[in-house]
Design a protein around this nucleic acid. Sequence first.
DNA 1: TTTTGTGCAAATCCTTTGCATGGGT
DNA 2: ACCCATGCAAAGGATTTGCACAAAA
Lengths: 134, 134
Amino acid sequence: MAQVFLAAELSPTVQRRVLYRELRDRSDHPDAEALFAAVKQRLPDVSLATVYRNLRLFVEAGMATELKVEGSSSRWDGNTHRHHHLLCSACGDVSDFFSEELDQLGDSLELDRGFEVQGMDVRVTGLCGDCRTP
Amino acid sequence: MAQVFLAAELSPTVQRRVLYRELRDRSDHPDAEALFAAVKQRLPDVSLATVYRNLRLFVEAGMATELKVEGSSSRWDGNTHRHHHLLCSACGDVSDFFSEELDQLGDSLELDRGFEVQGMDVRVTGLCGDCRTP
DNA sequence: TTTTGTGCAAATCCTTTGCATGGGT
DNA sequence: ACCCATGCAAAGGATTTGCACAAAA
């Protein structure tokens, strides 16, 4: 993990390390409050402001992504590999999915207006396994 | 336009008709403030609350879509045809694009966990024509 | 006259910021 | 000592809500 902070030119404070580890190790795209609660278990005095401040820094450094979805506050994503999202319209759950074909198609998209592609996020909405058959 | 309101079971008040028309006739995915300003030209006494209230109703009725993008307030989209979005990371511009292949691929996506697909929004980020070569 | 929609203002939620303190080098 | 990150509390922006009045049925 040390290299990550080194590369990002961010000093690896305890708060940052605990926050980053939490974000990286879970795949449920938590919001700031959830991360705050998790970090607080280890660092009872941490503040919500610190969580927000550092999430912003992580995003700037490419260590994380902000995911704004309707119906909730921003979700945060520590997965830096190319991937896309499944959004459950019933429970609000967000999960990752990967698709070779989609990525290839994305790379070769013919876009008019000379748009220069930097990235792509596919959001598939629907019902997750749990919500489909209760 | 009357049928749209009929189908949505929304009474076609002046405010709603002006707002809907504005939203439907522009493709720049305006935010609530921009729509408010536009509607105000015709209805000087309209309130921002009415704009927000009705946008929500439009979305519930499937007449519009909310588009939460980072770095700005919610954008609203009156295009009800299947389409995707180009987001310019420089100027914040949002535009539509269409792709047969993408839609077909989306329809046939093999998703594990028994996810039942309802819709798909592809967000391509990058530089729009204007920002690419200034 | 009953219902429904509106304008206004206040409230709420999420996120950011200013500032004094504390920790690390 | 210096600098940067933190905690706290206050500020800020976007959106929603309560309420009294107006419009429509």
